[in-house]
């Protein structure tokens, strides 16, 4: 087992940590969604990279080739990409509504403006 044999996983892990960090640390609602996108994208690498065979080609059947990469992860990730975009669209719609209701898209300001209300007993994260 060499370093290069697991290099693709290292990329995955780096992207995942970075994405998760943006989601948790940043207060801006849109930036959080971008971070969420990076976090989801890291999973694509986790699925696709192990399916590659060196010397293989894309999985389109042709008489000239014998070795193909694994098609099943590709199918799963196609589904995952579309699901990710659907989530992004819904999240952005929520951000637009939040901006109308609160006139800000910073998490701290929203929390601060809720504390003055009756029943708004300070939200936890």
């Amino acid at each position: 087992m060499s370093f290069w044999s697991h290099f693709s996983y290292a990329i995955t892990i780096f992207l995942m940590v970075a994405g998760l960090y943006i989601v948790i640390a940043r207060g801006n609602l849109i930036k959080k969604l971008v971070g969420l996108g990076v976090f989801q994208t890291s999973v694509y690498m986790l699925y696709i990279a192990p399916g590659k065979l060196i010397g293989g080609t894309a999985p389109i059947i042709d008489a000239n080739f014998k070795v193909y990469s694994n098609p099943l992860p590709h199918v799963l990730i196609l589904t995952a990409i579309v699901v990710g975009v659907a989530t992004l669209a819904l999240g952005l719609a929520l951000v637009v509504r939040i901006r109308e209701a609160y006139d800000t898209i910073e998490e701290d300001d929203i929390l601060a403006s809720d504390e003055g209300e009756p029943g708004g007993d300070g939200q936890r994260r």
Binding site: L33, L36, V43, T87, G91, L94, V95, A101, E117, Q123
Partner: peptide
């Protein structure tokens, strides 16, 4: 209007959870 913020937080947490499941 707090329902919007609650929903947004559910969305973020829920997506992180779903990605972990994946």
């Amino acid at each position: 209007r707090r329902a919007l913020v609650a929903s947004y937080q559910y969305l973020v947490m829920g997506t992180i959870g779903a990605t972990f499941i994946v």
